[in-house]
Structures are given as structure tokens and as C-alpha cells.
Write a protein that binds this DNA or RNA. Structure first.
Length: 450
RNA sequence: GCGCCCGUAGCUCAGCUGGAUAGAGCGACGGUUUCCUAAACCGUAGGUCAAAGGUUCAAAUCCUUUCGGGCGCACCA
């Protein structure tokens, strides 16, 4: 089992690519919970014409700054400027393609610049992954497969699938009502489809996966359909075990986000803002709390993660600061708060929880609803796995917390009635466990106090 | 033009492998703290489930068409 996400390189980490990592991470955890071995691969977009574009931009407008001090923002600006200028001057695109061709054929200058740009953005990505605490088992970029592309193309040719059309090397997919899959441009350099095919072959050999899951935006649907079809045509019996788990776009009210146009929300800014607001709320509600810093981080970042995962992934998401930074109602903090309350009761109870209780004491409406809810946890996880849908876990946790809070409000857990207390504390502990496990699957912490 | 996704209360969404009066949250209004954290709970108001046909004992849910929005459709990823 293997899950991949695909952050485009040479760009500032913004909201949109983070969805891929967050969804991929959650799906990975869901399958692990069910007992599968899951390898999370970060498929870095570190190759391709975009680097040609960056090199052109750098040489034209970037060289006045010593490139040692370049930041991702600088790279981003160059990238944006390239696309602005390219609209007026189409010759720039040709220059970029030429530079990528040089890069692919091993040109020293191109390679040095590429290496440098790559390091800058990789560092930036790592910073975000550290904040989100997303772990990948491997960081393997497209460039890694560059050496294998030749063999892959040879294999495809041997199968008689490749042909030349308009000077490019393609696999004709006309019979399947799809545009052709491009393997080589007319200047002989490769495209991402070529590298994806090579990568798939490599992964099959290396991991022998049961299933390969690509967590990538829905705008690439056609690409995956094409490339999976090519795998099938080559004759790989595992072609139908590759799935594209797509998700909707991240947009602003007035249009889509675009790295090329510089219209993005920086994830780092958002995370910092969320943590800052939580810190203030803690100061107001629970100033004597220990580990304030850690808790603020767990909740602030958790709020962003939850907000990203809680709607069905196929929907486009309209980004709205006020909405993401609202911490009441159906939000991450609400779940974590519920969890903290339960921990608080258990602390106050002070003894170990035992299962030798009188179950017939758990009989009020609110109690029964909660118990029934808890019982659904395993089937919810299975359904989430079946549909590659972390939002099911989010909705479920909202449900459980709603039931718990109604129960909490209507019935006192700790009382003089020893047997009733034991029974209810057992239920409290079970609920606590379900919430904690659920949050962990989503990639969130469950602080015991907040 | 072709393909895929979306269209459910003012807003954000759940429900959609068919089943009883369509559910939450936010926002609005009104309540609840001598009591385990009020980041909570309870109540009120608010919906011809985009529209029209069809299948069915039964449709928000399945099929067809239309409308509206998004995305994609050969040398970007």
C-alpha cells in the first residue's frame, strides 16, 4: 500500500498543495489503523519545464541578487514574473524549454541552478511538514526517475505502443476517447507522464504494492486516466490497482488561487495566525494552563487540519480567513475541547477505570445515543478507507462529540452513587479513547487540558 | 464542442450503494454556570433538496434532459 502526494516544487508552500499532504497523511493513517502497511511517498515536483522557466527568469531578472541569499519568496516572484512576461513575449517559453532540455541532458550550469533552487524550496516544504507533523517515508522527486525514463520508453516502443506525431513521441489513446499521452516533446525532452510511468514501474519493483494511491487535485484527472491506461496497455496487471484520489480546488471568493499569478495564501502565515489566536483565547479562558505554548500549537494547527479535512474532498473549497479561524461549533478545537473535558473528569475520578460495571445503569436517552455512536467507529474507518474519504472521520467525531456533550450536560458522571459512577466513567473513558484515536488518524493531537 | 466534478436553510456543509416529519454548524433571537473546563448545552425562526421528465409501493438519493458554477481537453505539472 502506498500513498503519494505531489507538492509542486520551486514554489512557496501555500494552501492548495497542503490539501494533498493532509489528505494523503490521513488516508495513510486510516489504512494503517486497519492493519495495512502504508508507505507515504512525497513525490516532489522537482523536474520539468518549470525549472527551465525559473532559470530563464533568474538569468534575466534575478542575477542582481547574489543567489546565495535567495529565498522561496524570491523564487516565487521570479516564477510569477516569468508568466507575466511570457504573456507578452512567447519567445520566453521556448527559452525555458531549451533550458530544461539542457538540464535533462546534464548541462552543468543548468544543473547547478536547479540544485540550488531545489534546496531552497525543499527546506521551505520541510518547515511546513514539521509544523503539520506530517511524516513521509520517502521524499523522491521526479528528477530521481530521470535515469529510468529511457528504459521505460524503450519498453513502450517494444510493445508497439509509441508513435511519432507532430514530431513528438506519443501513445495514441484515440480508441479510448482520450487525447494522446505525450512521452517526448519535439525537442526530445520528457514530460511528467513519462516520468510518472517510470515512477510507477520503479515503485512496483521496490514496494510490490497492493494498491498505489495518488492524492492529487482533480484538475489532473485526465492525466491520471491517460497514464493508467498506458500502464494497462503495456500489460501490467497491477494497472487497475492504481487509483487517483482527487480533491477539489482551493479558491478565493473572487477566483482560483494561482501560483503563477502569485495569488496564494501562505500556509505558514495561516498556521502562525491560528496558533496566535488560540494563544489569546487560552490567555482569556485558562491562564493558569501548563504547557500553554504546546497546547496552543496543537489546537491552532489542529484547527487548520480539521478545517481542511472536514468537507468531502471532491468539493472545491472557498478559502475564508474568518471561517478557518473560527473555533466554535463544528471545528477541530470543539473536538479537542470535548476530549479535554473527558480527561478532566478522569483526572478527578483519580482511580483506574474497570470494565466490571452494571451496563444496565447506562440507560438514559442521551447515554444510549452516545453508546450507539461509539459502536460505529470501526465501520466508519472502513468506509473512510473504502472511499478514501477522511471527512467521514471528521463528521463522525463531530457526531460523537455532540452526543457526548448532550450526555455531559444532562447527567453528572461523578456522584455518591458508586456503581453509577463506575458505569459512567467507563463510558467516558471509552469516548475519550475513540476521540483520541480519531484525532490521531486525522493527524491531530488530543491535548488533555486546554 | 467533448469529458469529469459541484448545485440541499441567509452562509458553510452532512445525508445521496432508495425507505417514515430532510439534519448539523455559523449567523439571528431567547434561555442554561452555588455543579466533572460555557471553546459547551437547550429552545425558536429559517428549506418547492437548481428545474423538468422518468423508474419505483417509496426519490434529496437511481436514469434522461435542461439551466447555473468549477476544472480539464498534445509538447506545463
Amino acid at each position: 500500500m502506498l500513498s503519494t502526494s505531489l507538492p509542486k516544487h520551486c514554489q512557496t508552500p501555500c494552501r492548495s498543495p497542503s490539501r494533498s499532504a493532509l489528505i494523503g497523511n490521513a488516508i495513510c493513517n486510516i489504512y494503517k489503523t486497519l492493519g495495512y502497511t502504508c508507505v507515504g511517498i512525497n513525490h516532489l515536483g522537482d523536474w520539468g519545464t518549470q525549472f527551465g522557466q525559473l532559470i530563464v527568469a533568474y538569468k534575466k531578472w534575478g542575477s542582481e541578487n547574489a543567489h546565495k541569499s535567495y529565498t522561496v519568496t524570491d523564487l516565487n516572484n521570479l516564477y510569477v514574473r516569468f508568466h507575466q512576461e511570457a504573456e507578452k513575449n512567447s519567445g520566453l517559453e521556448d527559452e525555458a524549454r531549451a533550458w530544461f532540455k539542457k538540464l535533462e541532458s546534464g548541462d552543468t550550469e543548468a544543473k547547478e541552478l536547479w540544485q540550488h533552487f531545489k534546496e531552497i524550496s525543499l527546506k521551505e516544504f520541510q518547515k511546513i511538514y514539521d509544523m503539520l507533523e506530517i511524516h513521509f517515508d520517502a521524499f523522491v522527486g521526479e528528477s530521481f526517475y530521470n535515469t529510468m525514463v529511457e528504459d521505460t520508453i524503450t519498453r513502450i516502443k517494444e510493445k508497439g505502443l509509441a508513435k511519432v506525431s507532430e514530431q513528438a513521441l506519443i501513445v495514441d489513446l484515440e480508441p479510448y476517447h482520450m487525447p494522446p499521452c505525450l512521452l517526448r516533446k519535439k525537442d526530445d525532452s520528457t514530460l511528467y507522464a513519462t516520468r510518472d510511468i517510470a515512477a510507477a514501474e520503479y515503485r512496483k519493483k521496490t514496494y510490490d504494492f497492493d494498491k498505489m494511491i495518488y492524492v492529487v487535485g482533480s484538475e489532473q484527472k485526465l492525466h491520471f486516466n491517460q497514464f493508467f491506461k498506458v500502464l494497462e496497455l503495456i500489460g501490467y496487471d497491477w494497472a487497475n490497482r492504481c487509483v487517483h484520489v482527487d480533491f477539489g480546488l482551493m479558491k478565493f471568493k473572487d477566483g482560483k488561487m494561482s501560483t503563477r499569478k502569485g495569488k496564494v495564501v501562505l500556509l505558514e502565515d495561516l498556521l502562525i495566525e491560528a496558533v496566535e489566536r488560540i494563544r489569546k483565547i487560552i490567555e482569556g479562558k485558562n491562564p493558569s494552563l501548563e504547557n500553554k505554548e504546546t497546547v496552543a500549537r496543537d489546537i491552532g494547527i489542529g484547527a487548520i487540519i480539521f478545517a481542511d479535512l472536514c468537507t468531502k474532498r471532491s468539493k472545491d473549497v472557498i478559502f475564508d480567513w474568518d471561517e478557518v479561524l473560527n473555533f466554535e461549533g463544528e471545528t477541530g478545537p470543539y473536538i479537542q475541547y470535548t476530549h479535554a473535558r473527558l480527561c478532566s473528569i478522569l483526572r478527578k475520578f483519580g482511580r483506574s477505570v474497570t470494565a466490571d460495571i452494571q451496563f444496565e445503569l447506562l440507560k438514559e436517552d442521551e447515554t444510549i445515543i452516545l453508546i450507539k455512536n461509539l459502536g460505529q467507529f470501526p465501520s466508519v474507518i472502513m468506509k473512510a478507507a473504502e472511499f478514501y474519504e477522511p471527512s467521514l472521520i471528521c463528521n463522525y467525531l463531530i457526531d460523537v462529540c455532540g452526543s457526548l456533550n448532550s450526555f455531559y450536560n444532562a447527567h453528572r458522571v461523578l456522584s455518591d452513587n458508586e456503581e453509577l459512577t463506575k458505569a459512567r466513567i467507563f463510558l467516558v473513558d471509552a469516548t475519550r479513547q475513540v476521540i483520541k484515536n480519531g484525532l490521531n488518524i486525522l493527524g491531530m493531537h488530543a491535548p488533555e487540558q486546554m
